[in-house]
Structures are given as structure tokens and as C-alpha cells.
Design a binder for these strands. Structure first.
Lengths: 196, 196, 196, 196
DNA sequence: GATGAATGAGCCTTCATTCAT
DNA sequence: AATGAATGAAGGCTCATTCAT
């Protein structure tokens, strides 16, 4: 039961970089081929050995959760200063954009929930949205009747629109149209230059 | 996990019955375990040999499409008489209920779309909804500003809500809440006895 | 996720033959390379697909238990007629010979016991030996003071001798020497022609 | 499952200590989980880096041989003064006890022999036993007809008994019973306090 | 036609071994 | 000299698909 002769080994130095590469690869491949891509493909795409993938992320779910984590972290940065001008609007757009970027998200959420006994996959959006929403409502930018929970429900609805979109190129405009149906204040005209 | 245990080799006789059994089994297992259940499990659940499964449905997708077909057929029956009282309302509810019954639908649609070059998975809802909607609008039951495409978009939104619901028991009420957000005329109070 | 093109498929007819081929291959490879041989090697040696191996024997242990079973079955045949002349002596020799044939037996037993919660790997030797031993004692061939349990202990001792033998060619004579040490009535002179 | 948690990188200082820690860990894990425990587990249990394990012991076998070595060294200390009262008896008991302590010994021996062309795994028991045995025989404590080789054969028999024992708690008494069968002079009554 | 065993590609995972730090 | 991450071969297992009966 002997083993092998390897080629390159960039040593433990690559540890951090590998983790990042794996996350990026996973994000890319999940988006492109769905949540069920072979993990071996993720390792290959990341330019990393199978073993390293497993060291960093013992299971597919850990990869998914780490991506969630990243996304949440970005949103939390955006939500950190609720009084900045356009804080809510930027935050909300970013949430929708993240969803557009990862069509596989639904599958991930579904699977994550199927597999994790209970909490674990906490929805952190409520806390993230709370302050920015209040400020935006005080400024009259968002109708008072919209609660944080309404927004989260709206977000889930957008998931549905995105994931059922035949042509990826249309996903964004469909999502905006859907948002407008829910409440015009939650949508925006996407005139090519990402204007609000 | 077998639910429907058929007896033994019933010979060529059971030809038609097998098809039904397979569809039922697939519907059940897709709902319970997701679109990716082993096809062998479907055959087993149907009490049918592996080979028969393949004769009737050469691939997973064919199974999914046949289920779509069934659903559409049911809806078309409902839409056949647009002037029957409550025609639109019943049709619309059934659409939502079908969606609730098959949480795996999203995955199926997604996968079906990913794999089929183009058409093939035609969305037949537009024709189905057209007449009943017009009649309902004429009767003042549904606002004029809602187009067939709006309804289809709403349907896709409901997909999202259902599939992201943590607790299956809450799926229905979340869906209704979401519909109400889109347009109150599309929702209904679900007072336990499925009343409209 | 399509699959493959196979070469030969002798159909379900081969079912029984495959099982036998797998058992034979396992017996051979366990003996030659120890209990930890790759199961894939067993399948290859048996000229059978990986999947068939798993259908017949879901785990390594099932293979081991089936081999035990075979051995026991042979011994039970031998023990069936305790009054046949030389019944005990033949039975006892066969037990020792089986042990010589499968040096990997110790590992198997050890592993089987490590993995199976409790009983399951029943030692069937007591019942097998009981009647033949009594008859042999009545005939004055075996000393009265040897109980069935003593024989089983002796058998375990022989295991130890066989498995620790450096040169396989010496295993048999070492075992006989060991038996003679325990009790001369349990050994025999092995003058090339398997005489008792 | 870590038992011995060492602190952190203690630098080149701990050179010698590491070797000891590795041996202890290996002895423990071999006994607990069998000879095939992952070497990484040994390193972890020893609180030592993977690399250090390899520096000290290039392969699994080296670890096993070092353990043998330790055992032999202890026995040689005991055999150093054959005329001390009870020298043989203590030596013999210790041999049996060592065997009881490492049930994995059989596997190790078997594997060691399988892998090493020839000598290398020298059996040092003959020299160790020689003088103490002669003295004990002269004193009438051990029958003259027992040769050193008989003792070694008896030892191998005890291996078999120990390794096939289902319940580890019974291993010792089974071994003693077996020894008594071989020759009462080789056994002893183990009345709880390890008395001879 | 139905049946169910057979097949084997491919994925997940483990672990011996190397090597930058 | 120690550390621990990286590497990749290899083995276990699953499952889509075929095919003799």
C-alpha cells in the first residue's frame, strides 16, 4: 500500500489562498452547473488537490454555508451605516444582485435545510435589514406598511422568478418586474448603468 | 420506504397500469426526496422492474415531463368551461395547489430547462389562463391591470416562496401571504376547509 | 450525467454463478493478501462487475460471513452422522484444515467481532462437535476429560500457531505439533498421505 | 479521540520526547483500533506533526518494530539475572502480559512478516528464554520435557486465544486456561492480585 | 412486454507521503 | 528539527443503463 509522487506543493503558505480559491471555484461552478457539481470539479477548478478541499470543507454543505457567510458578511458591511444616503436602496439592490449571481442559491438553501436538523442555516437578513429599513421609512423612501418580514418574503419571491427563468439574460429584468408588482418602492429602473 | 407494493410479475398484461404506477411513484418520491431520487427507487416504489421504467420513460426528464403533462391536463379540464361560476378562482387555486404538492417542481423545471435545448418544456399556462382570466375580469373579480403574464410571474414568485419555506407546514400560508402582497385578488383566506 | 457502454452481460442467468465466483475469489484473495484486499480486486478476480459484488455482498463483512457459512455447512455435513467410523477424527481434521486454508480467518473473525454489535457471528462449533465427540469418547478414542469447550480452545490456539507461522509451508506441521502438545489424541501423524 | 494532548510547536527541543510520545501513542492506538489505524491519528494522538512522525518512523512497520524492540528490551532486562528467585516465572508472565496488552500484535507480526523479505523481524525469545528456563528446570519448577521451542509454540498458541476472544475482559482467563491445557507449569492462578 | 441482475463509469473520501515554512 | 497543509492515488459505493430470460 505505498503511495505516490506529487508534482507541486506550495506548502502551508498556500493555505489561505487555497480556501479562497475553493470558495471562488465553488461559487462559479454552483452558478454554472448547479449545486450538484462534482466536488472533484470544484477542486480541479480551484487548482487544488482533492484532499485540500476536504480539509477546508468536509462536505458540500460546508462549502455552501461558507458562501452564504461571505454573502452575509458583505451585506452586513453595507448595513453597518444605516444613515448613509441611499443605504437601504443599495443594500436591497445588493441582496437582489447576490441572488441573481447565484441561481444555485435556491438549491443550496433547499438542500441545506433538508440536511441540517434545525437552525444552523440562520436567516440573517432580518437583522441586516432592520435598521436600514427603518431609516428609509422615516425618510419616506419606503412605505411604512412594509415590514422586514414582507421584504424577506419578497426576496423569496424573487428567488422563484430568477430560478425559473429560462433565459439567464432575462433574469434581472424579470426580477425587477416582479419586485414592481409587489411594491414599486422595492424595484428600480435598471437603465443599463445600474442606476437607482 | 416502499409504499405501493405491487404483487409480482404480472406479465405483459399490466402494461398500462405500470405507466400509471411509475408516474405516481415518481410524483411521490420527487416530492419527498427531491428531483434527484435514484430512478431505481422509483421503479421499486412503483413495484415495477428497472427495465419497464426505461421502456416507459427513457430518462428522468421524461418522467418529469409526463408529470407536467398530467398537471397541465388537469388544469385544461378546469379551464375548459371559462364561464362556469368561479372558474378562474378554482383554476388559480389548483395551480397554486399543484405547486404546493410538488416542491420538487422547481428543481424539475430548472433541470428540464437546463437540459433541453429550447422549447420542449412549453409553458402552457398562458393559453390555460387566458379565457378564464378574461371572464373573471369582465365580471369584476380580477383587476383589469393584471395580464396573463403577470399571473405567470406571480406563479413563479410563489414557487420561490414554497421552495424556500423551512417548515413544509407553513408553505401554504406563506404562499397565500405572498399572493396577497402581489395582489389581494389573487389570494384567498384559507379557513381550514379550503374555502375560497 | 449519462453513463456507459458495457461489454458483456450474461444476464440474470449468471446470478447464482456470480455469487459462487465471488465467494471463491474472496476466499482465494483473503487467503493470499489478507482480509483487507480491495473489494474491487475481488470483483475483478471473480470476473464480475463492482455493482454485482455489492448486490450480493453489501459489505466486506457479508463476504466474510458467507465464507464462514460455507465452512460451517461443510462441517455440519461431516457431523451429520456421528456414528460413522472415524467421524470425529475426520471432522476434527477438517476443522484444522479449514483453518490452514484460510490464514486470513483470524483477521476476519477479529474484524467481524469488532464490527458486529454482539452475537451475529455465532460460533457454531459447539453443536457441531458435541455428538461426534461423545461418540468418540465412548469408543475410547478421545480422553473423557476433554470437553467441547476444550476443543474450541484448542482450535483457537491452533489459529495462533498458523497465523504466526513465518513460512506457510511449515504451518501444517507446526499446527500438528501444537495439537500434540495440547493433547496427543487431537493430533495425528501427517505422513504425506493425509492418514489419520 | 485524542488522549495525550501536547501543547504546541515546542521546536527542535522536544526531539527525543517526540519519539517516545509517538511510540506510546502508536502502542495505545494499535491496541485500541488495530494495526491499521491511520498514521495521522498516531501523530495527532502523540501531539506531534505529521512530518515528525515520518522523520522518526519512515513507515508503519518501523513503528511496529520499535514497539517490538521495546518489548524485547523489557524482557531482556527481566532475563538478565536468571538466578534471581522466580526469574523464569516472572519472565514468562510478562511475555503473556505483553501479548494481552497488545492484541494488535498478531496483526503486526503477520503484517511485518508479510512485508519483510526474511529475517529483520527476528524472534529474540529463544535467547531470552534459554537461561531462565534451564535454571527453572534445574530447580524442578518446569518439566524437563519442555524445550525453548515448546514455549515459543505455546506463546503462539496464546496469541490465537487472545486474538479470538470476543470479550476483552475474558482474554486473560482464557489465556491462562489455554496455558494450563498445554502444561500446568506454564499457567498460574490469577487470583485478582496478579499473584503467581 | 416485464423482470431484475449485471455492468462500469464516476464520485466521494481517506490517508500515506511530501515539503514550504 | 518540527510543523501542518497540500497532494493525489486508490478504494468504497452508487446508480444510470443494458440485456438475457
Amino acid at each position: 500500500m505505498p503511495t505516490t509522487q506529487r508534482a507541486t506543493n506550495r506548502g502551508p503558505a498556500a493555505a489561505g489562498a487555497n480556501r479562497r480559491a475553493l470558495l471562488d471555484a465553488a461559487r462559479r461552478l454552483f452558478a454554472e452547473h448547479g449545486y450538484e457539481v462534482p466536488l472533484s470539479a470544484v477542486a480541479r477548478e480551484a487548482g487544488v488537490g482533492q484532499g485540500s478541499l476536504y480539509r477546508h470543507f468536509p462536505g458540500r454543505l460546508d462549502l455552501a454555508l461558507a458562501i452564504f457567510e461571505d454573502n452575509y458578511a458583505e451585506l452586513e458591511r453595507l448595513a453597518a451605516d444605516p444613515h448613509a444616503p441611499g443605504a437601504f436602496s443599495q443594500l436591497w439592490r445588493r441582496i437582489i444582485d447576490q441572488t441573481l449571481e447565484s441561481r444555485a442559491f435556491v438549491e443550496m438553501v433547499v438542500e441545506a435545510r433538508r440536511q441540517l436538523p434545525d437552525v444552523k442555516v440562520v436567516n440573517r437578513l432580518p437583522e441586516i435589514l432592520e435598521d436600514p429599513l427603518r431609516v428609509a421609512q422615516a425618510a419616506g423612501l419606503i412605505p411604512r406598511e412594509l415590514s422586514v418580514h414582507d421584504l424577506i418574503l419578497a426576496h423569496r419571491m424573487i428567488y422563484g422568478v430568477i430560478v425559473t427563468e429560462t433565459d439567464p439574460a432575462l433574469a434581472r429584468s424579470s426580477a425587477l418586474r416582479a419586485l414592481a408588482m409587489v411594491n414599486p418602492a422595492l424595484s428600480w429602473s435598471d437603465d443599463e448603468r445600474d442606476t437607482a
